[in-house]
């Protein structure tokens, strides 16, 4: 390679490297701001200031969904398998909302410690399978659902 070309290539690599480092540091500094939600453990640990509007993400605890017959009001518990936060919501839930699935809710914690959600979104996990495969996995006891936090919910660190 000719010397002037090598020099040019070198300076391009240098610029690219410098910018990558700068971008990496910026993103690292913004880490908490870029996270979409707090986990129930973070809420329990007092990382969220009282009375603040925020998002919480976790799994819907098995058997915790209680709907009211005459309204769209629903109560359930979200968990990250370490801490739990009860959630109250009035409105239409997304199709994928169900027990053992991940959700993200937006709202505030009231004085009773209940998260009053103004919006509930369902997370989908990264596993796609047919009902037959799912049934076979359940029968074999190898399904990860509800047993590991990897499905639909990612632990913080």
């Amino acid at each position: 390679m000719k010397p002037h070309r090598r020099k040019k290539l070198g300076s391009i690599l240098f610029i690219a490297l410098g910018l990558s480092v700068a971008a990496g540091l910026t993103l690292y500094a913004l880490k908490q701001n870029i996270n979409m939600f707090f986990t129930p453990s973070q809420v329990a640990g007092g990382e969220v200031p009282k009375g603040q509007h925020f998002r919480i993400g976790g799994m819907v605890k098995d058997g915790s969904i209680a709907r009211e017959d005459d309204s769209l009001s629903v109560n359930f518990v979200t968990t990250d398998f370490i801490s739990e936060v009860p959630i109250h919501y009035v409105g239409i839930l997304p199709d994928l909302f169900r027990e053992g699935q991940g959700i993200v809710a937006e709202g505030v914690v009231d004085t009773a410690g209940v998260f009053q959600a103004s919006k509930v979104l369902a997370k989908h996990d990264e596993n796609y399978m047919s009902p037959e495969v799912k049934a076979a996995l359940d029968a074999a006891g190898t399904s990860t659902e509800g047993s590991l936090p990897s499905e639909g919910y990612k632990p913080q660190y």
Partner: peptide, 25 residues
């Protein structure tokens, strides 16, 4: 992977049936 998101993480590619991802998809 770096942050928690509503978007699901990348799916593990697997052609083996019986693994978490069905082969059809």
């Amino acid at each position: 992977e770096w942050w928690n998101t509503l978007h699901q993480p990348a799916s593990p590619v697997s052609i083996e049936s019986g693994s978490a991802n069905g082969p059809e998809f």
